[in-house]
C-alpha cells in the first residue's frame, strides 16, 4: 500500500498545482453561494417555511440544485485523473512501476475524493451563518454531509471509469456527466412515472433526488449506503478492467 500512498500524494500535487482545481473550486463556491443566498432570502421572507426546513435543508435537499451540483462537480474532479495520464503518456511510467492497477485506481479515487471534499469544506461557513440567525440541526447537517460524500463517492468512481476510457479530459467530463445524469438521475425519475407498488419501491430505492431530500433532514439508512457503496465497488472494478483493456486493444 506504500505505492498507493505515494501515488495518492502525487495526485494531490498534480491536482492542487494545476489551475483546474482552483477553477473548479471557484465555480463551485460561486454557484452554491448564489444558491445558498437564494434559500436564506427565501426563508427570511417566508417565516412559515422555517418550521421543518431551514435554509440548510433546502440547500442540501428539496430542489434539483443540489443534485445538479453533484452531477457537474463530480465529473470535474475526476476528468483529469486518467485522461491526462494517457494524453501525456505518463501512464506508461506509472503502470510499468511495480504497482497493481488496483492500487493505482484506489489512489486516484482517494485523490479525487480529497478534491471533492475540499470543495465542500467552505460550505461549513453556511452553517455558521445560519447559526447566527437561528438554530442549526447539527445531526441533520452531519447526515447531509455524509450523504453528499456517499453520493459523491459513487459519482467520482463513475467519473474515474469515464476518465480511464476517454481520450481527453473533455470527453471524460461529458461521458461521466452523461452517465450520471442519464443513468443515476434519470433512473430515479421512474418513481414519478410508474404506479405499480413493486416498481415504485425499486425506483424509490434508486431515486437520487429523494435520497438527497432524506439526507438533508437527517435521514440516512443502510439501503442508501449499500446502494451507493455498490456503485463505487462496481465502477472502480470496471476502471481496473478498463486500464487493462485499454492496453490490450
Amino acid at each position: 500500500m506504500r505505492a498507493a500512498w505515494a501515488i495518492y500524494k502525487r495526485e494531490l500535487v498534480g491536482t492542487f498545482c494545476s489551475p483546474l482545481a482552483y477553477a473548479v473550486m471557484v465555480s463551485f463556491l460561486l454557484f452554491n453561494g448564489v444558491v445558498f443566498y437564494f434559500f436564506m432570502d427565501l426563508v427570511a421572507s417566508n417565516p412559515s417555511l422555517s418550521g421543518t426546513r431551514g435554509p440548510l435543508q433546502l440547500f442540501f435537499g428539496s430542489t434539483i440544485l443540489s443534485v445538479l451540483t453533484l452531477m457537474i462537480f463530480c465529473p470535474a474532479t475526476t476528468m483529469r485523473a486518467f485522461a491526462e495520464e494517457w494524453r501525456s503518456r505518463t501512464a506508461e511510467t506509472l503502470l510499468t512501476a511495480p504497482v497493481t492497477d488496483l492500487q493505482v485506481v484506489l489512489a486516484k479515487f482517494m485523490g479525487s475524493m480529497t478534491l471533492y471534499a475540499a470543495l465542500w469544506v467552505p460550505t461549513l461557513l453556511y452553517a455558521l451563518v445560519v447559526r447566527r440567525y437561528g438554530a442549526v440541526d447539527w445531526g441533520a447537517l452531519s447526515a447531509a454531509y455524509a450523504g453528499v460524500m456517499l453520493v459523491g463517492g459513487a459519482f467520482v468512481s463513475i467519473g474515474l471509469l469515464a476518465s480511464s476510457l476517454a481520450a481527453s479530459q473533455v470527453t471524460a467530463f461529458v461521458t461521466s456527466f452523461g452517465v450520471i445524469g442519464g443513468a443515476m438521475f434519470a433512473l430515479g425519475l421512474g418513481r414519478y412515472v410508474f404506479t405499480e407498488e413493486s416498481q415504485l419501491r425499486f425506483f424509490s430505492y434508486v431515486n437520487l433526488w429523494e435520497h438527497m431530500e432524506h439526507f438533508a433532514v437527517g435521514m440516512m439508512d443502510s439501503r442508501q449506503v449499500v446502494y451507493y457503496g455498490s456503485v463505487v465497488v462496481l465502477a472502480l472494478s470496471l476502471t481496473v478492467r478498463a486500464l487493462a483493456a485499454r492496453r490490450e486493444a
Partner: peptide, 11 residues
C-alpha cells in the same frame, strides 16, 4: 525508460 520520456510537468 520509455521513448521521449513522459513527465509530470508540475513536479
Amino acid at each position: 525508460m520509455p521513448e521521449s520520456f513522459p513527465v509530470y510537468p508540475e513536479m
